[in-house]
């Protein structure tokens, strides 16, 4: 698609970095509603990009299409130079994209530790035969899975460790559920992490802490992060770049300061001034 190459060149991005995710002309409609009406965007390796927009702008649909929950109606999604359109969502996860959900969708009846262990599925290989025969390979792998799960949970401080390991996820508080969901996504060993409203329902202290954590994910773990967020303070503190969606199209892009003074953005959020309309 030559047209896409043109749009991509004009996009701002961190100089010298490699494009991790390139999306061109992405379309998705549900019945008559155009959730995504030709979105182009690019995420570079090592970036933290925020996607904002009013309710119904198509932010979550964007995540759902990228992670293969819904097939796109048109357009292309390239991840590390490879098209991932039409792949099963498990294959997309295996390729290195992990996500969390807006309405936290944990495996509530599994324990905290199991939630993180099960997410390592696509990075491990022991099958039914090895499980039944309890081979040394399986034992070693099981031990590794557990160690790794504990290590990931320790990333969130003392909240999800110790006696928490064996508690069902449904016994967790709302903030801890959000943390566990991020831990679960991390366990798939992604390169690109998509976080859907990670601080929704958190108090200011927890929000500030999670903001730091998102930075840590990039700085210490080398992840590229795309965040959907409504909390503008978080968006300001965390993002290298902000993309604004409205009615399924990208209406602005740039640094937080650029975007927050952009007229189209203000209009999308607050409506058109009365004397004009």
């Amino acid at each position: 698609m030559t047209a896409r190459a043109g749009t991509l060149r004009s996009m701002p991005g961190r100089r010298g970095a490699e494009a991790m995710l390139e999306i061109g002309g992405l379309h998705k409609s549900f019945g008559g509603v155009h959730a995504l009406a030709g979105v182009d965007l690019r995420v570079d390796e090592g970036e933290i990009v925020s996607v904002i927009g009013p309710n119904g702008a198509g932010k979550t649909s964007f995540f759902n299409v990228v992670t293969g929950l819904y097939p796109p109606d048109g357009g292309d999604i390239m991840f590390e130079g490879r098209s991932i359109v039409g792949l099963e969502s498990s294959e997309i996860t295996e390729a290195g994209i992990a996500r969390t959900f807006q309405n936290v969708r944990l495996f509530l009846n599994m324990t905290v530790l199991e939630n993180v262990m099960v997410a390592q599925h696509c990075r491990t290989r022991a099958g039914a035969f090895r499980a039944v025969l309890r081979t040394p390979f399986l034992r070693r792998e099981e031990a590794e899975i557990e160690t790794r799960a504990k290590e990931i949970l320790a990333f969130f401080g003392t909240r999800l460790v110790g006696y928490r390991f064996d508690q069902p996820a449904l016994s967790l508080s709302y903030a801890n559920r959000r943390r566990l969901e991020i831990a679960r996504a991390m366990a798939t060993r992604p390169k690109l992490l998509l976080l859907d409203e990670p601080v929704a329902g958190m108090n200011p202290r927890e929000t500030a802490e999670l903001t730091g954590l998102i930075r840590k994910l990039r700085d210490e773990r080398g992840l590229t992060v795309v965040v959907i967020e409504h909390d503008m303070r978080v968006v300001r503190d965390v993002s290298d770049r902000v993309i604004v969606l409205d009615h399924g199209t990208k209406i602005a892009e740039g640094s937080y300061d650029e975007v927050s003074s952009n007229e189209a953005v203000i209009e999308a959020y607050l409506g058109r001034p009365a004397e004009v309309g």
Partner: peptide
């Protein structure tokens, strides 16, 4: 085992299990 955990996850929420 890994397979048993996957089964449990599928039973809980098939869509999310696939996304993981």
């Amino acid at each position: 085992s890994r397979l048993g955990r996957a089964w449990t996850a599928i039973r809980e929420d098939e869509t999310v299990a696939a996304a993981m």
